[in-house]
Lab assay of single mutants.
Amino acid sequence: EAHFQVQLEQLRSMGFLNREANLQALIATGGDVDAAVEKLRQS
């Protein structure tokens, strides 16, 4: 989780407030914030 701290903060600042969902999306996308946003929008 600490590995994705910067990305988690970016997602939070973009309005994605579900930390667990954000973390799962980042893990699934290897930390790619843009891909994580797409994944979160689809769910």
Rank of each mutant, 00 (worst) to 15 (best):
S43V: 15
R41W: 03
R19L: 08
E38H: 15
D32F: 08
A2D: 09
E1N: 01
S43G: 15
L17Q: 15
N22K: 02
V37I: 09
K39M: 10
V37A: 13
L40M: 14
Q5V: 07
K39D: 14
E9W: 01
G31C: 03
D34W: 04
R12E: 11
G15K: 13
L40F: 04
S13M: 11
F16A: 03
L17M: 08
G30A: 12
R19K: 14
L23H: 13
F4Y: 14
N22E: 01
L17K: 15
S13A: 10
Q7V: 03
G15E: 12
E20F: 03
Q7A: 05
Q24E: 09
N18C: 11
Q7H: 14
V6M: 12
S13W: 01
V6I: 15
E38G: 09
A35D: 13
L26T: 02
Q10V: 03
D32G: 05
M14A: 06
R41S: 07
I27Y: 04
E38A: 12
R19C: 11
E9A: 04
D34H: 09
R19V: 10
K39I: 06
Q7D: 04
A25P: 00
E1A: 03
E9G: 10
S13R: 10
H3Q: 12
M14G: 05
N22L: 01
A36L: 01
A2V: 06
V37S: 11
D32I: 14
R12V: 07
Q5S: 10
R41C: 04
A25S: 09
Q24R: 07
N22I: 01
Q7L: 06
R41V: 08
K39P: 05
Q24F: 09
A25F: 03
F16S: 03
G31T: 01
V6H: 14
R19G: 09
A35P: 10
I27E: 13
D34Q: 12
E38S: 10
R41M: 04
F16W: 13
L40G: 01
Q24D: 15
V6Y: 10
A35K: 15
H3T: 15
L26E: 00
D32C: 06
A36V: 06
Q10T: 07
V33H: 15
A25H: 13
L8K: 04
E20G: 07
A28D: 11
K39F: 05
A28T: 08
R41Q: 15
N22A: 09
V6C: 05
I27V: 12
E38I: 09
F4W: 06
G15Y: 03
D34M: 07
L26M: 09
V6Q: 15
G31W: 03
F16P: 00
G30S: 12
L40H: 11
F16I: 01
L8T: 09
T29S: 12
A36D: 00
A35I: 10
G15A: 05
A21Y: 01
V6E: 14
H3D: 14
D32L: 09
E9S: 05
E20N: 12
D34P: 13
H3L: 08
G30H: 08
L26P: 00
L11P: 00
E9I: 04
G15S: 06
G31I: 02
R19Q: 06
R19I: 13
R41K: 15
F4K: 04
L8P: 01
S13E: 12
Q42P: 14
N18I: 06
V33Y: 15
E38D: 11
F16T: 01
Q10L: 04
E1T: 07
T29H: 11
A21Q: 14
E38L: 10
G15I: 02
V6W: 03
Q7S: 05
A2P: 03
